[in-house]
């Protein structure tokens, strides 16, 4: 059973690596959104630094959401999902492998890029560990929750906007906790509480959402 998990993870990784451009898209989007904010609110360093926790998190959240739109669409169209559903393996396990592979290649890249963009917004070096850690704990939750929406909308021709509509409200706790952690770090306050909450959200998402994703996919395939 775990063998299938590893195989699917490797297969997804291989597929993602063969389309490097698609991997880069969310990253570029992330960078552009961050670059838009100074243009919109002005280049004043103090102001930018004050709002940077929110900015980085909002941009990361949108980038993850954007990257998730096509998560299952390819598999839906080429019949892979049907094969998953008729296979003897639990669908929840398969989707977990798929989402984790996707997160490792897009979410993790986002986490690694974030300090650079944070620096550009004037985030001090002392806040970087919290930025990295909060994104590291928060982006898997975003990916997993988003995958629920992606699974429910996979059969629709234009799922993109609907996906955002379904999922953005559910992202709010992660946004609050993630930017809260960063804000605390920026003010020199301890951020451990936020990070622990984020970690428990991640644990919760990791255990529960695969079943919701599997249910969503079964519904979409059975349509």
């Amino acid at each position: 059973m775990s063998n299938v998990f590893v195989l699917l993870f490797a297969r997804e990784a291989r597929l993602l690596c063969r389309r490097p451009a698609e991997l880069a898209n969310p990253l570029v989007f992330f960078a552009i959104v961050i670059a838009l904010f100074p243009l919109a609110v002005g280049p004043e360093t103090q102001l930018l630094q004050r709002i940077s926790p929110g900015l980085v998190w909002l941009a990361a959240l949108l980038a993850v959401l954007l990257s998730l739109d096509g998560l299952f669409r390819g598999d839906y169209e080429d019949g892979s999902l049907e094969q998953w559903v008729v296979s003897p393996h639990p669908l929840a396990l398969l989707v977990l492998a798929k989402v984790l592979a996707h997160w490792v290649f897009s979410g993790l890249a986002l986490v690694i890029l974030a300090p650079l963009l944070g620096l550009m917004l004037g985030l001090p070096g002392s806040a970087m560990p919290v930025l990295l850690l909060s994104l590291l704990l928060g982006t898997p939750v975003l990916s997993l929750l988003g995958a629920v929406g992606a699974a429910l909308t996979v059969g629709l021709k234009r799922g993109g906007l609907l996906l955002a509509l379904l999922i953005l409200p559910l992202y709010i706790p992660v946004l609050i906790l993630g930017s809260g952690a960063l804000q605390a770090a920026l003010q020199g306050l301890p951020a451990a509480g936020y990070l622990l909450w984020l970690a428990s959200l991640a644990a919760l998402a990791l255990t529960l959402t695969p079943f919701a994703i599997a249910a969503g996919l079964t519904i979409s395939v059975g349509e």
């Binding site: 063998n3 299938v4 195989l7 699917l8 297969r11 291989r14 597929l15 063969r18 389309r19 390819g74 169209e77 080429d78 019949g79 892979s80 049907e82 094969q83 998953w84 296979s87 003897p88 393996h89």
Partner: peptide, 21 residues
Amino acid sequence: AAGIKGLLTAEENLVWLCALQ
């Protein structure tokens, strides 16, 4: 649609589809 991925080779596709069953 038989679950064949365009980006994978014929062998890779079959290895996975077999592993699934």
